[in-house]
Amino acid sequence: MAAAAAAGAGPEMVRGQVFDVGPRYTNLSYIGEGAYGMVCSAYDNVNKVRVAIKKISPFEHQTYCQRTLREIKILLRFRHENIIGINDIIRAPTIEQMKDVYIVQDLMETDLYKLLKTQHLSNDHICYFLYQILRGLKYIHSANVLHRDLKPSNLLLNTTCDLKICDFGLARVADPDHDHTGFLTEYVATRWYRAPEIMLNSKGYTKSIDIWSVGCILAEMLSNRPIFPGKHYLDQLNHILGILGSPSQEDLNCIINLKARNYLLSLPHKNKVPWNRLFPNADSKALDLLDKMLTFNPHKRIEVEQALAHPYLEQYYDPSDEPIAEAPFKFDMELDDLPKEKLKELIFEETARFQPGYRS
Rank of each mutant, 00 (worst) to 15 (best):
H299L: 15
A352R: 10
P58C: 12
I53K: 03
E250A: 05
L130G: 05
E12G: 10
R359L: 11
L222T: 05
Y358R: 09
K99R: 11
K48C: 08
D20H: 12
L200R: 11
A4R: 11
Y193L: 11
Y312W: 10
L278Q: 15
N144F: 10
K203G: 08
Q236E: 08
R359M: 15
A42Q: 01
L267V: 10
L258S: 03
L335P: 00
N297G: 03
P319W: 01
N224W: 05
K259R: 12
A282Q: 02
G357C: 14
I140M: 08
K292N: 13
E12V: 14
Y25S: 03
N224D: 00
D175L: 10
D336V: 14
L163M: 12
L200T: 05
L121S: 04
L237K: 03
Y113H: 04
S360E: 14
K117T: 09
A5P: 07
E314N: 03
L234V: 11
G34N: 04
F19M: 05
I209G: 10
L28Y: 06
K270R: 04
R301T: 07
K342H: 01
K330H: 02
L343N: 12
L278D: 03
T159P: 11
G182R: 13
S202L: 10
N262L: 04
S57P: 10
A2R: 01
L343Q: 15
C161F: 13
D100S: 11
L308V: 04
H310D: 02
I256V: 00
A42W: 00
E12D: 15
I240K: 08
S122Q: 10
L218D: 02
K231C: 08
Y30R: 02
L258Y: 11
R50K: 12
D321E: 13
R261G: 11
F329M: 07
R70Y: 03
L308Q: 13
L287S: 11
V18R: 06
L156A: 06
L290S: 02
Y358I: 12
L338F: 07
A327D: 14
G169K: 04
W212L: 14
S122A: 13
L265G: 04
I103S: 12
M199G: 05
K55H: 12
L241P: 04
H310N: 14
Y128D: 01
E71K: 15
S202A: 12
S246H: 10
L252H: 08
N45H: 12
I89Q: 01
A9Y: 04
E81Q: 05
Y312G: 06
T185I: 12
N281R: 04
R191V: 01
L156K: 06
I84Y: 08
A92G: 02
R301F: 07
E305K: 13
P323N: 01
R194N: 05
G357E: 10
G10R: 13
R359Y: 02
L75G: 02
P226S: 11
G230H: 00
F279Q: 06
Y36E: 14
D291Y: 14
R277A: 10
